[in-house]
Design a protein around this nucleic acid. Structure first.
Lengths: 345, 345
DNA sequence: TTGTAGGCGTTATCAG
DNA sequence: CTGATAACGCCTACAA
């Protein structure tokens, strides 16, 4: 096959053990021996076999990432944070696209085990899926740390990086109320998603603060996708007393709303007001002054890797047998006002 | 550590070899023995260690994917095609985000070798980079097939999946000419990119067909990113005799153009005409009738995996020692007219 | 049909 | 500071 550690050893007139020490920057090697070996390594263009090393150490630097919808720009941004951070920390990323299919999600769990990944970062598809929850807890117990991002799992206490969905949503709806709106509609996220639920609770809480009863006619069950949101906008707007403002629960939903709004030629912040969750670069290009609840998505990805790194470090210091703290990180949200929240502006 | 093939063997009262045969679906195992082993495997929740297997067979089912700009929706779509196809064929994807940094690209090549990936799919950053070319050819020679996507490398004959950039661009510009435009500007892609160059040649060829001389004042050097395109639009439009139509060489560039156009309140297909390369879902939502050169990006990703699969199969049939054909697949483009090409519409 | 034994390329533990 | 040698978990001739 390809050139191995013995070839180097032979050439250098030493044993494989010494070469191994050099490769791994271990102490107790004479400076000269080291230099010589290093030279031979580079001149023979030798690259240690990671498979063999991992097998021997029982520890890969590979981490798995399960992502439900690769084309959603939110996830792309996350992915960039993740890949950058994992490069920084020396991990390889195994990418698994689950495409919103729970079967795929489960299939990938098997892969994770087979490949002996040292950690996984998961955006679970269904917060209520007991099987996923079980499998993930098994990983944790087996010493494979799990970090959730954005979405969570019900009754499944794991590490995770989330955002302040409740606060963000509350602030957005509160803002609309301050603007004078009283008929505020929302298109909810999927019921089995933590962010969807939190944002819904934020909506309710803001209404309650202002002593306003939530009304069925202004509430729609969305699925975080554009098509449905677009349809729901029709049913929201084409009723006798339509809402004066919309709170949309994610970026795709906002697109659906905007689709309807631009199609009807409505003026944002004039004919209809709106605040969406999650910013999109595209809005700027299109000169669309949509107010949004923003958060640092890139850093969510980065934080997830750091959290994982920390957990992995704790696991390798098993000698102290510390009980490590579970951590949930909540990235703050920020309300960015661009005018679409205005009433009859 | 975790449970291994010997544990299963002991429990089943057979040797590890027999268990191995069962795991790999090899013949010459009594049906009953097989059933029994399978039962034990599932009851003990055993998953074979892929690292050990790969080390032993010298063949991983892992393939690397180098992508320059994860947040570009074109690449997201590609990524979806790739992940779906690789799941279908049983590969794992190692994702490497190069972020347009040639150093990262080279660093990842090292990783590819260390991890003994069985193939790589690359979107090279710089078509003129000799080092990348050299490394990729080395991989090919070492039996690690390489498939390029979209972008290529100069003087580096490798397998690849591209699209009919020249034809697409030619058709777009020809269409603008048919509409009566004579002052057609273009914002070019990077000079070191194959698609950028092909699309530029298509532009020139179309002009030539109509006997029109390309004019410096209507040509700008872009970089496939939005910001620069936006700036270049200023310099294009704010001259004494501005162009009447724009041909934009990729999706991000189109965004930059649209940014300018919407900001100035220009009417697409009225005040200014335009055709872009690559469609974007977003356009529909924003009700923007941009005509585009479209291609099936998802299938480009899928095709890349299929090409790789074929090459891998050929390599394993080394006994025949066939010289396998290098393949370049060119996905067709399609001009989608939505009105923005019209003149004084 | 099944078992034995050696090898894949490293690392790690002891000795020296 | 360096070298044998035994793992790591699986596959695969070859033998039985």
């Amino acid at each position: 096959m390809s050139i191995n550690i013995y070839d180097i050893a032979k050439k250098a007139g030493v044993s494989a053990a010494t070469v191994s020490r050099v490769i791994n920057n271990k102490p107790h090697v004479r400076e000269e021996t080291k230099r010589n070996i290093l030279n031979i390594i580079s001149s023979m263009n030798y690259t240690p076999n990671a498979l063999a090393r991992n097998l021997s150490t029982g520890n890969t630097l590979n981490i798995g990432f399960l992502i439900p919808d690769i084309e959603n720009p939110f996830f792309s941004q996350l992915l960039r944070g993740l890949t950058n951070a994992s490069e920084r920390y020396g991990y390889n990323i195994f990418l698994y696209g689950t495409d919103d299919s729970i079967e795929k999600e489960h299939r990938f769990f098997r892969s994770v085990k087979a490949e002996r990944l040292s950690g996984i970062i998961v955006i679970p598809i269904d917060a209520n899926n007991a099987e996923s929850c079980k499998r993930l807890l098994e990983f944790e117990k087996a010493g494979v740390p799990v970090v959730l991002i954005d979405r969570g799992l019900k009754n499944c206490r794991l590490n995770g990086v989330f955002s302040e969905d409740f606060n963000g949503s509350y602030a957005a709806v509160d803002c609309l109320l301050q603007e004078g709106h009283r008929r505020i509609a929302t298109i909810k996220g999927p019921e089995n998603s933590r962010p969807g639920n939190e944002r819904w609770l934020g909506y309710l809480a803001a209404l309650e603060k202002w002593n306003i009863k939530p009304e069925e006619r202004y509430i729609r069950q969305g699925n975080f996708h554009e098509e449905l949101a677009y349809e729901l906008m029709h049913s929201l707007m084409e009723q006798s007393e339509p809402p004066t403002a919309i709170f949309s629960s994610n970026n795709m939903t906002s697109l659906g709303c905007l689709h309807y709004i631009t199609e009807k030629g409505l003026i944002l912040g004039g004919d209809i007001s709106m605040i969406g969750f999650d910013d999109m670069d595209i809005l700027k290009c299109m000169n669309i002054k949509l107010s949004v609840v923003d958060r640092d998505v890139y850093s969510m990805g980065w934080n997830a890797i750091e959290l994982l790194t920390k957990r992995l470090a704790e696991l390798s210091n098993k000698d102290k047998n510390e009980i490590s703290c579970r951590q949930e990180i909540f990235v703050p949200t920020k309300l960015i006002l661009r005018g679409s929240e205005k009433w009859r502006g």
